[in-house]
């Protein structure tokens, strides 16, 4: 691993984060709405209201507000959520495990299922198996995840009574399996789109790789199709998936706003959504920046993993032939 490259890429994160913070802060602040509404009571006078805005620095020009915010962030202070009256870091850390658990599970599940489906569709190209899987991927890409979530809820929760329809834990039950039981439907709802997308990429890659000489050689030497796929072909097919997963890393933090809301999952997604609705600027910025950091880091890690998976890729942008 090229250490210089790693340091260079890490340094590149700083201007990206800065630009994202500038754009996010300005967008958040020019949106209509007032976070002080959460404090306002019918008995509050206009003077008291203005004093509260002053206290939170909301009467300052936006560039001044940004610099104040940036100064606090650089000192490790992410601010205090206005309606929740709690530090942003405490709120985020409190919700992070629920979202991470849900989204990572969905990611692992999606990749595992799409490897099987994509591989199968690629190997069985043109057969009814391929057509069935392709049909599923069209539906999966087209279907809104929240609608699919409600369908799952109606079928598996209401009709078949197999899973609870909402929440993360049964009250009074502290077991891992209880959480898994609650997580299955949201994981399925989140995964449907991912599985469909990943499957299509893997299928296309399998088909293109099937004609490559190393595959033909392996088959000529008597290796079974499945052995060829599992041992030789899948490694090359993983490259686009690694890139896609890296690009989707931002979701890992903010989760699925809608799915968390539909299933009453107490994660960062619902909290971010509520922060937006309440114009809770500090919390909105906290969630945005965390999502950005994870997204950039995800892409960075994806680049490294891609280089490890395919030796032809050099991290400095050179190829093996050069």
């Amino acid at each position: 691993m090229n250490v210089r490259y790693l340091l260079k890429r890490t340094a590149q994160l700083i201007p990206v984060l800065f630009l994202v913070s500038v754009f996010s802060f300005f967008l958040v602040n020019i949106a209509p709405g007032d976070p002080i509404n959460s404090y306002r009571t019918t008995e509050m006078t206009e003077e008291e209201y203005q004093a509260l805005r002053e206290e939170y620095g909301l009467n300052d020009p936006i560039p001044v507000q940004y610099l104040n915010w940036l100064g606090r962030i650089l000192q490790g202070n992410w601010g205090t959520s206005i309606p929740n009256r709690q530090p942003v870091t405490a709120l985020i850390l409190g919700r992070l495990p629920a979202t991470l658990g849900l989204m990572l599970s969905a990611l692992v599940f999606s990749v595992a299922v799409s490897l099987i489906l994509g591989g199968l569709a690629g190997v069985k190209q043109g057969t009814w198996v391929d057509k069935l899987i392709s049909g599923f991927t069209y539906v999966g890409i087209s279907i809104p995840s929240f609608w699919f979530g409600i369908l799952l809820m109606l079928l598996f929760s209401l009709q078949l009574k197999l899973f609870p329809s909402s929440g993360m834990q049964t009250t009074g039950v502290n077991s891992f399996w209880d959480i898994v039981h609650h997580a299955i439907l949201p994981i399925l709802a989140i995964s449907i789109g991912k599985i469909a997308t990943y499957t299509r990429y893997i299928r296309a890659n399998v088909i293109s790789q099937m004609g490559e000489e190393y595959v033909v050689t392996a088959i000529a030497k008597g290796a079974s199709a499945w052995r060829v796929v599992a041992r030789h072909l899948m490694k090359n097919c993983m490259l686009p998936i690694i890139t896609l997963v890296g690009m989707g890393m931002g979701d890992i933090v903010t989760g699925s706003f809608v799915i968390e809301s539909v299933f009453g999952w107490p994660g960062l997604g619902t909290m971010s959504l509520n922060a937006i609705l309440a114009r809770d600027f500090p919390l909105m910025m906290g969630c945005t920046m965390l999502s950005c950091i994870v997204l950039i880091s995800g892409n960075f890690i994806a680049d490294i993993v891609c280089a490890q998976a395919d030796p032809r890729i050099r991290l400095e942008g050179r190829t093996a032939n050069e």
Binding site: I150, M153, L158, S165, S261, V262, G264
Partner: peptide
């Protein structure tokens, strides 16, 4: 014996939960 307040933002999910006895 116990009262539980469950945060459920989606009204469709609430209705499903009612019908499901949750």
């Amino acid at each position: 014996k116990t009262i539980e307040y469950r945060v459920m933002q989606d009204t469709t999910a609430q209705e499903v939960a009612l019908l499901n006895g949750e």
